[in-house]
């Protein structure tokens, strides 16, 4: 408990909500107030002034800025996201179909990163400064250096064109069945997840190696644990805070930063939608997308903060 009796977790949640409100102001300012009239863009340069004024009135552009911000934000909260200028469909529907691709893709990629990165980091830590460690870290360095799209192209060459195990690209939609949907996401998830696995392996190894040197690990061994058991029971739980912090950053990146891999595999994901709506000046869609990604990042950060409070009892008290 803190002075004033407010638990730390409540303070963190309040801070996250405040961040979202501030972000909405920034997004609104960037998209609506800065030069460039959306109505003028829609009508083109030949538009007559009275047509332009009518459209501005119809779009609500003639109202004061703070009021427009509030209407937009409360609309977002109620789920009224407006209509996409480019596609002519409700933004909510558009974003939902894209998120149905991007979210599973990010989760799968995270699974690849955790499933490969953490065991590799643990393996390297147990063989600190020996051959196994050096080999693992060398592979991780290659994984870090090679761009995800290049890994994607190699994967397509091998598994789609060579072995014909998995589709080379495109997304059949979840209506075509969970299996074929997932199959379409496997190669992109590996391409996205491998560089992240390399980062995670390095973070895990460093954290574990540092903790294995600490006194309490020796104490645990004096109780009767072997080195490996002490690593699993004492070093790993204490190494989780840095690992979880990195995972949180990675998830945000995987959700929003998959544009290139989505392009390599022709996936209809959020990343491509961002690029398309920027190109088409589709402001309602863009505003909604940016807010969605901001919300996702803030939410993941909040989850990481709350998890860290659980993992390290010392954080719960410090002021």
């Amino acid at each position: 408990m803190r002075p004033g009796g407010i638990p730390r977790s409540v303070l963190r949640i309040a801070a996250a909500l405040l961040t979202l409100v501030l972000a909405s102001v920034l997004v609104f300012l960037a998209l609506n107030v800065l030069p460039g009239d959306p109505a003028a863009v829609m009508l083109g340069t030949e538009a007559r002034p009275d047509t332009l004024a009518a459209l501005r009135r119809q779009m609500g552009l003639d109202q004061p800025q703070p009021l427009r911000w509030w209407q937009w934000l409360s609309g977002l909260a109620r789920g009224e996201l407006g209509t996409s200028h480019t596609y002519g469909v409700p933004v909510a529907e558009l974003v939902a179909t894209r998120a149905a691709v991007s979210l599973p893709l990010a989760l799968l990629a995270l699974l690849v990163a955790v499933g490969l990165g953490i065991p590799a980091g643990l393996f390297a830590a147990t063989r600190h400064r020996r051959t196994g460690d050096l080999a693992t870290m060398a592979v991780a360095l290659v994984g870090l250096s090679v761009p995800a799209f290049w890994i994607g192209i190699l994967l397509v060459l091998l598994f789609a064109i060579g072995l014909r195990w998995l589709p080379a690209g495109g997304f059949p939609g979840w209506d075509a069945g969970i299996l074929s949907g997932t199959a379409a996401l496997i190669l992109p998830a590996i391409a996205l997840g491998l560089p992240q696995a390399a980062v995670l392996a390095r973070v895990t190894r460093t954290a574990i190696v540092e903790i294995m040197r600490l006194d309490f690990v020796r104490t645990a061994r004096s109780f009767g644990l072997t080195r490996t058991e002490a690593l699993r029971r004492h070093a790993l739980p204490n190494a989780l805070p840095p690992i979880v912090t990195v995972l949180g950053l990675q998830f945000s990146f995987l959700l929003a930063g998959a544009v290139i891999v989505e392009n390599v595999f022709y996936l209809p994901g959020l990343g491509r939608l961002v690029v398309q709506s920027v190109g088409g000046r589709d402001l309602p869609t863009l505003a909604c997308l940016v807010m969605l990604l901001v919300t996702a990042v803030v939410a993941v950060n909040l989850a990481v903060d709350l998890l860290l409070l659980r993992l390290d009892p010392r954080l719960r008290q410090r002021g």
Binding site: L214, D215, F216, R218, T219, A220, R221, S222, F223, G224, L225, H234, P237, N238, L311, D312, P313, R314
Partner: peptide
Amino acid sequence: LRGRRIAMVFQEPLTALDPAR
């Protein structure tokens, strides 16, 4: 044998315990 037959007490009590347990 450690813990069961031979036990140990160390110098630095501030760091000798697992902080998360």
